[in-house]
Design a protein around this nucleic acid. Structure first.
Lengths: 228, 228
DNA sequence: TCATAGTAAGTCGTATACGATTTCGTACCT
DNA sequence: AGGTACGAAATCGTATACGACTTACTATGA
């Protein structure tokens, strides 16, 4: 349906360069879970694997470090960033803020066609609930919000959203799991959000709704973590 | 008084490394205005100047690119990022959002001592108005907000604030100038903000006040730009 | 057995070198 | 004179090489 994925982001640097290729390759492996958190990223090994020398690989790793996907320690090396619950909290909280702002800023620019597409994605999400397909659910969730952000007037804020998504993706296949019941509520909130946008609600209300939509997932996680 | 400056930030990577030194050096020159927007950053020249080889310099430039301070083009080179009014708008708008959030999150954790320190800084800012010292005014303004953010519970958000400040710093000594009257209003808003924090006002109210405090500067700039 | 020093392996950090690409100037042709 | 093609200079992109640092292992002595 929608081909919006987490990878078609800024594409900032010099396309075609080996540095860029290495960046994309390593990032893909992290996001897809081939390199799990804690995995040791040895420059020489990656370079050999990709057929490059270590220099462009090194540059790629540093970029990933800047995005928070890997941790780098001098004279020691890089590892895929961990699943630290504190980091999760930070990232989710930050996302709630920037997604809220992005949604509010975009809302006035969303046309009815986009609304319809978002509704279709949301319907598909509801189906995922029945088949229990968390991976696809997460993908569709990003598609949904990507549609809302399509005409976001501030690319900086959009970039921050994408960075947050990338961080979360790196720990998708980790110990964190769906909180039962939360996913269904999320789908309902999507519908409510679309209604707000359609009716041209106040920007503050839209922002608040979008922010709570994200932070509720965080709250659900925290509540669950407390019971364990 | 306060020694909080724009340069004592994350200090993320490997301290002591030449790559890090080059990063700090080039960044300082941009922020201080030695390298003005549009300035051509030639790797070999910088390397020779610092006494390093090009490799660590290259890494430094790429980091600065990730922060938006320089623009990099494949096989061409890097230049100090420009003064594009659109970029200014994006940055200010983003700052209004993340500063607002940072202020609201920090407010409950600010003690009376910090409040007093912030007041002292704000008094000094008022004096700067009389002596007309815009550079010091800007510095004190950052000191003021840094005090409020001292115990910000979310380092990610704080990092976003710092990034925004850095971007603005790179165009401080450019065509952008103080908007007459705005600076004085800003000092008054600081006092109002402190009152809100002292009285334990609602987080939403604090966030809104802090956000408007920043976006009002943007509005003043836009209004002025329109008249020219 | 445990602690410790010494050593070897692994890995990173940076310098140097060279091929690739762009840019700019100049000469030639129309 | 204007435009195009060619060539040289400048600069970047990457490979290779080597020194520096960290880590883990091993052997030795208490």
């Amino acid at each position: 349906m929608t081909e919006t994925t987490i990878t078609d982001l800024p594409a900032p640097a010099t396309p075609g360069s080996k540095s860029e290729q290495a960046y994309q390759a390593v990032k893909a492996r992290i996001v897809e879970g081939a390199y799990t958190p804690g995995y040791r990223l040895v420059l020489a090994a990656i370079a050999k694997d990709l057929g490059f020398s270590v220099v462009p690989v090194r540059e790629a790793i540093r970029r990933l470090e800047a995005e928070g996907l890997v941790t780098f320690e001098r004279n020691v090396g890089a590892t895929v960033s961990g699943i630290d619950p504190t980091e999760y909290l930070y990232t989710m909280q930050t996302l709630s803020i920037v997604e809220g702002a992005a949604t509010a800023l975009s809302a006035p620019l969303i046309d009815s066609v986009a609304i319809a597409r978002a509704r279709a994605v949301n319907r598909e999400m509801r189906q995922c609930l029945d088949h229990f397909d968390p991976v696809r659910f997460t993908q569709l969730n990003q598609d949904f919000h990507s549609i809302l952000f399509e005409h976001c007037p501030n690319p900086h804020i959009l970039d921050l959203v994408h960075r947050g998504w990338n961080r979360l993706a790196s720990l998708r296949s980790s110990t964190f799991r769906f909180v039962p019941g939360r996913a269904r509520a999320s789908v309902d909130e999507h519908e409510a959000l679309l209604k707000l946008i359609e009716t041209g609600a106040d920007a503050d209300d839209i922002e608040k709704a979008a922010r709570i939509h994200r932070s509720a997932t965080l709250d659900a996680y925290l509540a669950q973590a407390k019971t364990i």
